[in-house]
Amino acid sequence: MKIAFLYVAEPYQCYHVAAVSSALSQMPDISVTEFVSFPETAQHLDQIRRANGLAGTIRRGTLRIPARAQILRRLRRLDTEREIVMRANIDQLEQYDAVVATEYSAGLLREMGLRRPALILIQHGAGDREVNDEHLIRQFDLSLVSGPKIAESFLAKKLATAAQTRIIGYPKFDAVGAERLAPRESADRKPVALYNPHYKKGLSSYGKCLEPLVDAVNQLDHYELLIAPHIKIFHKDFGRRRRQFQKMVGSRVRLDTASASMLDMTHTASASLYIGDVSSQVYEFLITPRPCVFLNPHGVAWRGNPHFRHWTLGDVVDRAEDILPALAQAQSRHEFYRSRQEKVIRETFGTQPKRGASKRAAQTIRDFLRGDPALKGLSAAA
């Protein structure tokens, strides 16, 4: 069987599937080829495998990148660029038995004419946010998800059937060092508060909360603030937003806008407090329960909304003037949230061991492609 792994987004996606493609490539009668759109993604894939001793023989295919896509990439119109690249490579992908992707947008391959290969989704991230293109999940023949929370959401929204969905855990845990799966505070500096604002307009907090947050950290003089925005904040931007963040750097404030530490769970492992809005990284932080503060400057009516389930795991701040007291009380108030954090993490990542999801995913893909009748929905992978 010939399996293609398609990487048409930025390097964040490769942490969710690198260990899966490595595991598949070690199986008999399976050939794995990776198609990488961004050169830096290939670099991350190589680094992940070196750092974690992931073996296997994987071919590296070459995607055709049309001139229009190259222009859009320079303009940081990456969502549109991605669609053009996929369309330009349909004929090449048609030669495979399966195409594996982490982006919902890969569902467009069916509308673009992909017919022969099975289309397989490995969910990246484990968050709650409603996304515009989630309807494309219906185009996938098989969806591999981290835990019952996401599986049940797919079923409830009729995005996939039980026969199309498997719970396999979180493959990203196999692509990062073991030290990133547990907190590791430094004894020679203040506790780290990680600020991880999302890019989604109408939900992101940095526009209204960045300066008040930095002021609060400086006044409190308890935390060192590490600002690590979602990478997509810098799409459709020519440096203005990056300069906005850079103005906040000071003796108690650090900034990371581009390093691998934003992607490989280094920051979530080193932080004592998570501050954010709707990024799914909060769940990577909470694999060990710790205090959280969520910022809601847009006054979203979130209570009872499953797309804001993570906002039940810490205090939610609506007003800028309340940021300082929320930070000051975060540690003492954590006792009110710990048990719920533990429950939601089980729902999000399942009850399997943290490591091993990539091998479960590889075996599930192999069995699915072989038409194994023993696989009959969620119960087979739980």
Rank of each mutant, 00 (worst) to 15 (best):
E34G: 01
R240N: 12
N132L: 06
S204Y: 07
I323P: 00
E130M: 08
G276S: 13
Q70N: 02
Q164P: 02
V100P: 04
F234W: 09
I3R: 01
G169D: 03
A258F: 12
Q43C: 06
V249H: 13
E40G: 01
Q123D: 04
A162D: 11
N89H: 04
K2Y: 09
I233A: 08
A69H: 04
L225F: 14
R252Y: 09
E40K: 05
P148C: 13
L109A: 02
R355H: 06
P191Y: 07
S332N: 04
L286Y: 09
V293A: 04
K172I: 01
E130I: 12
A126T: 13
E321H: 09
A18R: 02
Q95G: 11
I122G: 04
H298Y: 14
Q246K: 15
A260W: 08
R333D: 15
Y274V: 03
Q363H: 08
A23M: 09
R366K: 14
E224T: 13
G371T: 10
T268W: 01
L286S: 08
S358N: 09
L263E: 06
L45K: 01
K376L: 08
N296C: 09
P191W: 05
S153Q: 10
A18N: 06
I345G: 00
Q70R: 12
R74S: 07
A67S: 05
G239S: 13
R319W: 07
R340N: 06
F245C: 10
N52E: 15
E40W: 01
R303E: 15
S204C: 15
S21F: 10
Q13P: 00
G371N: 12
S272N: 06
